[in-house]
């Protein structure tokens, strides 16, 4: 099967049981995406697929023919950090670092959802959400951080959003309904 990872076209032969997360970590040496629970409960494996954040542990690799996948490695590297990565460093939005790649991918995807006008449980106006602290907390609650950097994570995301990150966020493409 073929797909794009961090802008590179990849072709792999993969076991149908292999999750997208295990494909990235064990076959493509992209260990930035973390396995925390393997059950979609912690968010450490969050990656962007076609601009939309998903738990890569809950998705089989074979479902991603022709998809565009972006992992934390694709957002930036230590010498050229993505604004969200730099903001996490500046605000200490992590401690052990294990949930961090998932938090960052999730945050980037989340800003795209807000920019696209997707409402949440706490949006006063479901059709026109605004990025309040409460919105960030609600929308980031699928990413568990046991070190509990939550206030710092919110500060990092808010700063990126204010600095134009909201407009620059990827447009999430809705999954087409399965035939």
């Amino acid at each position: 099967m073929q797909f794009t990872v961090n802008g590179q076209r990849r072709e792999v032969d993969v076991d149908i049981r292999t999750s997208l997360l295990d494909l990235l970590r064990e076959h493509l040496a992209l260990t930035g995406s973390k396995k925390g629970c393997d059950h979609g409960q912690c968010g450490a494996c969050t990656v962007l697929v076609n601009g939309r954040r998903i738990n890569s542990c809950l998705s089989l690799a074979v479902m991603h023919q022709d998809d565009e996948i972006v992992t934390v490695e694709g957002l930036g590297d230590p010498e050229r950090l993505h604004p969200m990565q730099a903001a996490f460093v500046a605000h200490d939005g992590y401690q052990c670092g294990y949930c961090t790649p998932g938090q960052i991918c999730s945050a980037v995807g989340m800003l795209g959802e807000v920019a696209a006008g997707w409402g949440s449980h706490v949006s006063p106006d479901l059709a026109a959400p605004e990025l309040s602290t409460e919105e960030i907390a609600e929308r980031m609650s699928g990413n568990v951080c046991r070190c509990a950097a939550y206030p710092n994570i919110r500060a990092a995301i808010a700063e990126v959003a204010e600095d134009g990150g909201l407009e620059a966020a990827p447009e999430p493409r809705r999954q087409e309904a399965l035939a």
Partner: peptide, 20 residues
Amino acid sequence: ERVDGPAKVSGRATYAAEYR
């Protein structure tokens, strides 16, 4: 800022199960 910060936020910090 943490000196290991850039490695952590870019997914380059290597945890136990991640050595090739």
